[in-house]
Design a protein around this nucleic acid. Structure first.
Lengths: 318, 318
DNA sequence: CAATTAGACGGGCAAATATTCATTCAGACT
DNA sequence: AGTCTGAATGAATATTTGCCCGTCTAATTG
């Protein structure tokens, strides 16, 4: 017993020595092997033992480090395939620019690919801000498709038309959806979606390689209400039915399940299709939205998230 | 100006991201390159930037780490070619076993070499304890030579006969010095050293590839006094002449210079020869000895040290 | 506006590191 | 004693990393 213990501790001592020489003194494993009088392989084993035994602790002195940890934590906890957290600007915690730049960077990287991609987009302020950050590019190989109508029910254009703006910037083929966001009735919705053009666009959206969406909360300050898509009475009914958030106007409850009936009967938007190889990434910032974001992640409506530090903190602390 | 600053910070941000992914998340630089959308080379540059900008801090959670730091500090401060620090046992701070094991390990490594080596040894409790830790070995290729006589002036054997004990253990040729430690007079010393055998041994000692010695303090509890080599009056005279320590009975002052006259006139031991390729390593423990050790290092009487944590701390804080 | 120059970039290659695998060795158990 | 087992070892090999160098870009200067 005492022998085994001694043996173990002396091995750990050596591991610590090797770890120190490697990480602190910057020796190569060959040098460590020489100094400790063991073979190079053994030195390597000692170093990796020091790591696996958690003897070496690495810390990163930079605000970004916290963001990386939060992103990692969110990915783990909610099984996301992709998660990025931008530093919050303490002066303007609600500002979108950090997140918008981060998301724009990711999209830009995507667009640089030579392989043709289908990119599906929702709407929303965050997404709009992000598109504004995109540089001029020339990407005729890609296609950008809208997930939801660009009209109000009365035919007016919707305020945050992301697809057209983006296609404009990056010069890609694009497919805005020539529909209202909500049909006036279930029958009208079916009628509209039977049009061949609409059908094709919905099919394209289904095949999208990546999908970026915003997330809206439900309540007095809900985007859907503010932008005039749903009435105050409808909002009340939705809340009563347990609604906490919406993505492309599809309203869902606390567990991320779509609400049956009510406005969802008349939503003309494409339905989301999540799979690990076809990420659906939400861009959403703000503590008001945490319930909606949490629900969307729980219900696997999304499998990717781009947010800011403050929101990420809230999400990890329920 | 603001552009340059922004550029720099965003570069550091990326460096921090890369550093985090590399050191915390354990990604390879290829993966980082893919995730950050840059070339592998750039990812490598970012990681090394994070290191050179001191964004990554490594800490080792193990008592050994402190010892390594102390050893490093001592090497730097006193230009040692070799320095090792053993953890002090808090229960028995004066115990030699930690240091003895460490030194034995180093000697064992040396003995494992196939190249014939000449190893010169002094005496002392520390060295003796160290030799006791050596395992049985078979090293006929090496030679072990004594730096100083193994007799009292009256012909009795000296108490800590290290050479014979060690040669016994490792089965090497050995050369004990058939002399008293101190001659009775300058004339006797010259006479003794003119013997051919003694002359050869001294020459061998001069050529030694490595030399291990103890360090003694001077004073009421000096080994030289306790073991009966010098009298109380001689000790007083030595202290008056500025003596603070001795190595192989050669007495030196605060700055590491050998004392002129007094007992040094009659010392029959070999004189130490220090050079970077022929290290002279002291094995010395105890806060009583710090002055002696400091002096020996200052005067370049030694260029290597094996000690324990507590002593090392004292040495570094003057 | 042209010339110069500092710095970033990526290809290619050598060094360093990680992993696999067959072998050895010490201790446990029959 | 013989045999088994599991850990440790070093050779071989695969992967990863670090660095040099020619090229390119963009900013600065005359």
């Amino acid at each position: 017993m005492s022998n085994a213990g001694d043996h173990e501790t002396s091995r750990l001592d050596d591991a610590a020595r090797a770890g120190w020489l490697y990480y602190v003194a910057g020796n190569t494993q060959d040098e460590i092997a020489r100094k400790l009088g063991v073979s190079r392989q053994s030195a390597q084993r000692l170093v990796s033992l020091a790591v696996s035994e958690k003897l070496v602790k690495v810390r990163l002195d930079h605000p970004i480090a916290r963001c990386m940890e939060l992103a990692h934590g969110l990915s783990e906890k909610f099984g996301l395939v992709s998660c990025e957290v931008a530093p919050s600007d303490p002066d303007a915690p609600a500002a979108l620019t950090g997140v918008a730049q981060l998301a724009a960077g990711e999209i830009e990287r995507l667009l640089k690919s030579d392989h043709p991609k289908i990119i599906a987009l929702g709407t929303g302020r965050a997404l709009r801000a992000c598109v504004e950050q995109l540089p001029k590019m020339d990407c005729p190989q890609h296609r950008i498709v809208s997930l939801l109508g660009n009209m109000m029910s009365d035919g007016a254009a919707t305020p945050y038309n992301v697809v057209i703006r983006m296609a404009d910037r990056v010069n890609a083929r694009h497919y805005p959806m020539p529909l209202p966001v909500f049909a006036r009735s279930v029958e009208e919705k079916q009628l509209l979606q039977q049009q061949e053009a609409v059908h094709n666009i919905l099919e394209l959206a289904r095949q999208a390689d990546v999908t970026y969406v915003g997330i809206g909360n439900i309540g007095d300050n809900a985007p859907l209400l503010i932008d005039g898509f749903v009435s105050r009475e409808e909002t009340r009914a939705l809340i009563k039915a347990g609604a906490v958030g919406e993505i492309t106007s599809w309203v869902f409850d606390r567990s991320g399940k779509l609400i049956d009936g009510l406005t969802n009967d008349r939503v003309a938007s494409a339905i989301l299709h999540v799979s690990p190889s076809k990420p659906v990434i939400a861009i959403a910032v703000g503590t008001l939205k945490t319930d909606a974001i949490l629900a969307a992640m729980r219900g696997r409506l999304i499998n990717g998230l781009i947010t800011d530090e403050a929101t990420a903190e809230h999400l990890l602390n329920h």
